[in-house]
Amino acid sequence: MSKWHKLKRTDLKDFLSRLAEKWEVWVPYRVDGKWEFGIYAPDREMDFPESVIHVSMKNLFFPKRRPIAKYEEDSKWSMQPVAADDKPRIVMGLHPCDVAGIEYMDKVFLNSEHKDVLYESERKRTVLVGMLCSEMADNCHCTDRGLTPDSASGMDVAFAKVDDYYLFKGMTDRGKEIMQSEYLKAVGDAPEKRKWPAGKYAIASPEEFMDMYDDKIWHELSDICLTCGICTYACPTCVCFLVTDEKFKGKGERVTVWDSCQLQSYSRMAGGHNTRKTPASRVRNRTLDKFAYSHLRYGQISCTGCGRCVMVCPLKRSFPQLGARLSERIRDKKKSKAGTGARSKED
């Protein structure tokens, strides 16, 4: 088993600059009080956030707008697939919930019938250098979803912030290559294991959620939702996209663009019929997709407990709370069923 290595905080820039010689290094930056990921530049002030940030890593593997083919009038509009990027890169500063999100995306884009070649190349060229959280933010509830804030599962390299230094550990063969750095010194001690609180937003089982499909509660749960798309864009496991052509002056691109089931246009079909016209039906779709459909398809629920949906919601509505409220309703229903032996009329 490999050991934990120490990196002095003052050596961070040199360490990253050395890595940047071979890899494209992506790190978090703070711009106007907001976090974003960018390619490492020595003259730019950067820092690693203690815990989850409002932007998910999704954009680095499955970009918001992604050209998949190009065509030109001169070549009679014949389609040329976009070549995959294979420059090796390091994405640094992901948290366990981000990694869980990427693992879920793998199931959708790689381990399913139709492989997404562009996504595959992004995954292949990337070494995941994950950061173990040192605190849980207000909306964090990964411990309710079977994760721990300091779990290194799925990372190539894991690191943690301790006092005035960082502790690094190579987890995979790819990760160990990064560990070959003169700035890292092997030490015996590992970051302190903590006990994390759980039980904030406990939820029912996928099967129980499925039983709620026809319940009237959806109107109540969606009554103030705007049905804008921001929660789905921030969510690390929302992977819906649409394909569209963008043509301008004799040149064209076929692109995939993030789509959102919360928007009315998402389920509008040719001929104009809309299968999810009411906000209630759209909120139901997203909720069940997170807690039930994902489980049916990929064997795991797709909420990683990162809490970004709450962070970005214009109305500060709590999606996890919604799931918990629904679960409460499921329990109540069961109780009354057991008590009376019959389903109440209202339901």
Binding site: K64, L226, C228, G229, I230, P314
Partner: peptide
């Protein structure tokens, strides 16, 4: 702009 259409929806 992320085109989330929150402006339109509200």
């Amino acid at each position: 702009c992320e085109r989330c259409y929150a402006c339109r929806q509200i």
